[in-house]
Amino acid sequence: MPNLNDIVEIAESLESKAVFAAEERCVVVRNRNAKCRKCVEACQADALEVGNNRLTYHARACVSCGACTVVCPTEALIPMRPLDEDLATATAQACVLADGMAVFSCARAAARRKADPDRFAEVPCLARMEESVLMKLASCGVSRLVLVDGTCKTCKYRACDPGIDATVASVNGLLEAEGITLRVERLSEFPEELLVEETTGLFGVSRRGFFTQAKDVAKDAAEKAAVTALKKELQQKAPSLRDRLKMSDKGSLPQFNAMRRMHVLDAMDSIGRPIVPEIETRLWGNVGIDTEKCTSCFMCTTFCPTGALKKSEVEAEDGKTRFIEFSTADCVQCRMCEDICLKSCITVSDVVLTEELFDFEPRMIELPEPPKKAGIISNLKRR
């Protein structure tokens, strides 16, 4: 049986990164003129660098708060501790024991051991919380949505405090638009129903239990080591970033779905369509194009990461008019189109029309006929 030092060493070597960086999703990697720096602004540990077609994540500097994974519009930064799926499972189990109340706690508040750990879900920092998890719970009919912090003013994660407030405001804005009374509550103490007086047996393990657990950890570690070696081998054979960003036959870079936003839409649809004509939100955007300035270069459709802007295949009767298709539900407000437009004719608003958000049909934007390029003979005549 390995000693405890061996176990710790193995566990540390196999410890996964807190964040996985899917570089091909980052708008700056796709086009160096993109101005998005939301992840860098949210990170308090200088663990992220963005610029010159590169997204660099420094795992050793990361403090696992998860703030960057929430603000990234294209979901290029994926939280690993915990994964969205694991957080959802833990929440579902805790909800049942808490009589339908959904409670999330930061690690600092949980460490006080004042509440039953089986009746709430723990995250390293509440900055890890985002709209899809909370809206899904709202659609399931939970009685309360509670976030418990550990007094952020004195916490090492305190720079994340405004971000947590922004998430609470975002979710509550969506719930208000839905016309229901449920709201996210942010507290510094656990709800009374979760408090416990006797903590013996709820936290930690006995000495005998610890060594039994340590043996299992060692066995697990050996299995994980084999899996890690296999993953490294596969990664060596994986296509490069350049290959992953090759242009498609339709003249655009590879596109993807923003899954979290899709989950929010599904949750909202389950609750019922919003009762307001428009919604102010950070999740989706409304694109407008000044057709008097536009030259129909279609650069916006080439670089749009989610396909919210697409070159339409619809042919006009006059054979000259061109169209761009815009889908509000696919727009993640990354503002890539705004940043790269050579004529500055595109604007992105954070106010979206409810009807368009839930419409399966895209909005057609009519573009002007592109300017004719002067030929060699024309240039000679001018001389």
Rank of each mutant, 00 (worst) to 15 (best):
F358M: 06
N52F: 09
R32F: 05
G173W: 01
V148N: 06
L241M: 08
G209C: 12
A45Q: 07
L357I: 06
H263Y: 09
V348L: 11
P305N: 06
D243A: 15
I324F: 00
S270D: 07
E41A: 08
T228E: 13
C160I: 01
L134I: 13
R273E: 10
S139C: 08
H58V: 07
N286C: 08
L182N: 09
L194C: 03
G66L: 02
V148I: 04
F358L: 07
L283H: 11
D330G: 01
I7Y: 03
R363M: 07
N3T: 09
G163C: 03
A121I: 05
T295G: 00
A225F: 05
L241D: 12
V148R: 09
K38H: 07
L380I: 15
V146D: 03
P191D: 05
C95R: 14
P277G: 10
A18D: 13
A21R: 02
A316D: 14
V351E: 07
A258Q: 13
L97R: 14
N33A: 14
R273Y: 09
I376W: 12
L147Q: 11
R322K: 11
A109H: 09
C294H: 08
P124R: 13
R183H: 07
A76E: 01
M129F: 02
I365Y: 01
D339E: 05
M299A: 12
G204Y: 10
A18Q: 05
A34S: 15
A138D: 05
V184Y: 03
V264L: 02
D220H: 07
F20Q: 12
T328I: 11
E122K: 12
C39N: 04
G173M: 02
S312D: 06
K156S: 13
G179V: 05
C43W: 03
E9T: 11
F323V: 06
R32E: 15
D84T: 06
K232T: 09
K310F: 00
A102K: 08
T306P: 05
C43Q: 03
V227C: 00
C72V: 00
K310G: 01
N172M: 09
P239H: 08
S143F: 02
F358E: 06
F211I: 14
A110P: 00
L283S: 04
L245Q: 10
T199Q: 12
A374T: 12
L309G: 10
V227I: 09
G204L: 10
G201D: 06
L175W: 10
S143G: 13
F210Q: 13
G163S: 04
L230K: 15
L380D: 10
R382N: 15
N379Y: 09
S296K: 03
L353Y: 04
Q333C: 04
M364Q: 07
E313F: 09
R382P: 00
Q235Y: 10
Q44L: 07
L145D: 05
A214N: 02
D86R: 10
P79E: 06
V227Q: 08
V148W: 04
K250A: 15
E193C: 06
R37F: 04
T91E: 10
V287I: 15
T91P: 02
F104N: 06
T74D: 01
L134N: 08
R60G: 09
E12P: 00
A111R: 14
P368Y: 00
R382V: 15
L145K: 04
S64N: 14
F104Q: 03
V70Q: 15
L83R: 13
I279W: 11
